[in-house]
């Protein structure tokens, strides 16, 4: 049975508008005009236990709206949603007891209290039996290296430390499903890697189902086997990263470092898209010429010090898709 089944989910917000200026303000006291904004225009997908799904899209695409509906915060305008066998907004209390939520930009810990006191409080709120809590906490402290942070007031933690604690806080009641909303936002490189490794481990070792929304494509590339890409309230793509690449371009890149900076390359079935001294980036279509052929062709004509093939960065792919859907 899927963990999440979403069918034809839609959500329309009513935004009140008023004309600018004093007159507009006065007029709006008597009569307000409302405009419908469609945040979700009928989306459907299912997620199986143990999946780690990246849910991406540009700002205002409907990501947060979806996450809020799935976590029981928001009531949709239409469609059917089942999460762990329940309809989130109808059985909110029962539903939220089984999910964990982390909003990267906010903290669920009490600012002025040591971390452990927030944890203890969450134990009470989720009514976790004492022994279970002890066990889970020990595990989390171990895997997330929290032992030194537990007695520190939250306001004294660095953002990376706080995020680790927030992640642990979301897992104390052993949820079956975890929503991560931009968990790496604002983190430095090391902290990002730490968070990613944690998420990966939780998913792999404990079979935790994870829905991740992010703007950081490295998050997606290192974590998610499956990506759901939405824009303007519609799903554009639901599949592997590879499929997402193919949607935009099959283009590959060959980076070569020339032995001699003054060499000019032409007459090969590839386009120079970037040149920086001896370092050249060529773009080629693998349907026209295989990488092996191209490399053979180049190395037989030019002195090369080094070379490697790469796919277009996922960042660019996504930017391309966003752009295409905006015009």
């Amino acid at each position: 049975m899927p963990v999440i089944a979403v069918e034809n989910l839609s959500k329309t917000y009513w935004v009140s508008e008023r004309a600018p200026g004093t007159w507009g303000a006065l007029k709006s006291l008597v009569h307000r005009r409302h405009r419908a904004v469609e945040a979700l225009g009928g989306i459907s997908f299912t997620i199986q236990p143990g999946e780690l799904v990246g849910y991406i899209g540009p700002n205002g695409a409907g990501k947060s709206t979806t996450v809020k509906v799935l976590s029981g915060i928001l009531v949709p305008s239409g469609g059917a949603v089942t999460v762990l066998g329940r309809t989130p907004w109808q059985e909110r209390a029962a539903h939220v007891a089984h999910i964990g939520v982390v909003f990267g930009q906010r903290t669920q810990l009490w600012w002025d209290l040591p971390v452990i006191e927030s944890f203890d409080l969450l134990r009470e709120i989720y009514r976790v039996p004492r022994e279970d809590y002890r066990k889970t906490l020990d595990e989390l402290v171990e895997t997330m290296a929290l032992s030194e942070l537990l007695d520190t007031p939250v306001r004294l933690l660095s953002l990376g430390q706080r995020m680790r604690c927030d992640l642990a806080a979301a897992l104390l009641h052993r949820p079956e499903l975890l929503f991560l909303d931009e968990p790496t936002i604002g983190l430095d490189a090391i902290a990002k890697l730490t968070v990613r490794n944690l998420v990966k481990r939780l998913n792999r070792d404990q079979g935790l189902t994870v829905i991740l929304t992010t703007h950081d494509m490295d998050d997606i590339e290192s974590l998610c086997s499956r990506v759901i890409l939405i824009n303007r309230g519609k799903i554009l793509l639901d599949g592997t990263l590879e499929r997402m690449r193919q949607l935009v371009t099959t283009e590959r890149r060959l980076v070569i470092i020339l032995a001699d900076e003054s060499t000019w390359i032409d007459g090969v079935q590839a386009r120079v898209i970037h040149r920086d001294g001896a370092r050249l980036t060529l773009s080629f279509d693998p349907d026209q010429i295989s990488a092996a052929e191209l490399i053979g062709d180049i190395t037989s004509h030019y002195p090369i010090r080094d070379l490697y093939v790469e796919a277009a960065p996922i960042e660019e792919i996504v930017a391309q898709i966003y752009q295409d859907t905006h015009t």
């Binding site: 029981g72 209390a93 009490w110």
Partner: peptide, 25 residues
């Protein structure tokens, strides 16, 4: 003041993911 900040910046969303009665909470 924590509550005020929560309502203002939207952290109130977290509060809604708790299995507790928000008023008594």
């Amino acid at each position: 003041s924590d509550l005020v900040a929560m309502i203002r910046d939207g952290t109130v969303a977290y509060e809604l993911t708790r299995p507790a009665d928000l008023y008594w909470y």
